[in-house]
């Protein structure tokens, strides 16, 4: 207090200039940051919900032992203004398609977070976003995640498959089999029945009647 009372007019002027200068610097740097962020959202095609949210974590390792033992590194976790959390995962592909394995991955991350101490009593949304990068263009796809019980059932099914008590399902698309390195051990390509295109009706007679020719 003694030090403050001994300030002369010059010292006070200097203090005011420093404080005002710092405030002006913060104001302009915030504006520049906001402009850069808007450009980033536009380039990345970020959905509005994620633009409104804050980035809570990126590339963080998480794990849990209950109810099932899983570990992994999520890509991004966003916190909405309503204090809910949203998971996103990035994939680079030729086409912007979401596969079942992507949904399982995000659902597993959600299960880990819900069962970790840091996220106790916190809301983690039952949906996530797949960020698909295809030839340099980013697409965001909102996906509904599996329930916790469904993930646990899948974990137990995996255990059963490895023990040999459950018969494994074969692949459901031709593309998965044809390039598989276990093709010979699997017993060959699953015979997929290609759907024949439906026969188009012969409209030639109709066109003649209508006077098109």
């Amino acid at each position: 207090m003694q030090l403050v009372l001994n300030f002369g007019p010059d010292e006070w002027a200097a203090t005011v200039i420093v404080v005002v200068g710092y405030a002006v610097f913060l104001f302009f740097s915030k504006r520049a940051r906001k402009r850069k962020a808007t450009q980033f959202f536009r380039d990345d095609n970020t959905p509005v919900e994620l633009q409104r949210s804050s980035l809570y974590g990126s590339e963080q390792h998480i794990s849990c032992t209950t109810p099932i033992a899983l570990k992994g590194t999520y890509d991004q976790l966003y916190k909405t203004p309503e204090k809910a959390f949203i998971l996103t995962d990035t994939k680079t592909r030729k086409k912007p398609v979401v596969y079942e394995s992507d949904i399982i991955q995000l659902s597993a991350y959600r299960l880990i977070l819900r069962n970790s101490r840091a996220f106790k009593n916190k809301t983690i949304q039952p949906y996530g976003y797949m960020r698909l990068v295809c030839n340099g263009v980013t697409h965001y796809k909102k996906v509904d995640l599996m329930s916790e019980q469904a993930v646990i059932d899948l974990y137990e099914r995996r255990y059963g498959l490895y023990k040999g008590t459950i018969e494994p399902k074969k692949a459901d698309t031709y593309g998965k089999c044809i390039n598989c390195h276990q093709l010979a051990n699997c017993g060959g390509v699953k015979p997929f029945k290609k759907k024949k295109p439906a026969k188009q009706p012969n409209n030639a007679f109709k066109h003649a009647e209508s006077g098109w020719d």
């Binding site: 033992a69 899983l70 570990k71 992994g72 399982i104 974990y155 399902k169 074969k170």
Partner: peptide, 26 residues
């Protein structure tokens, strides 16, 4: 305590179960 499975490994269940079993077997 059971060993923790990596999530990326676990997600392969959605790709092909037969592939998972064959990878482990061979």
């Amino acid at each position: 305590m059971s060993k923790k499975i990596p999530v990326t490994e676990f997600a392969k269940m959605g790709y092909c179960e037969t592939l998972l079993v064959l990878n482990k077997k061979h």
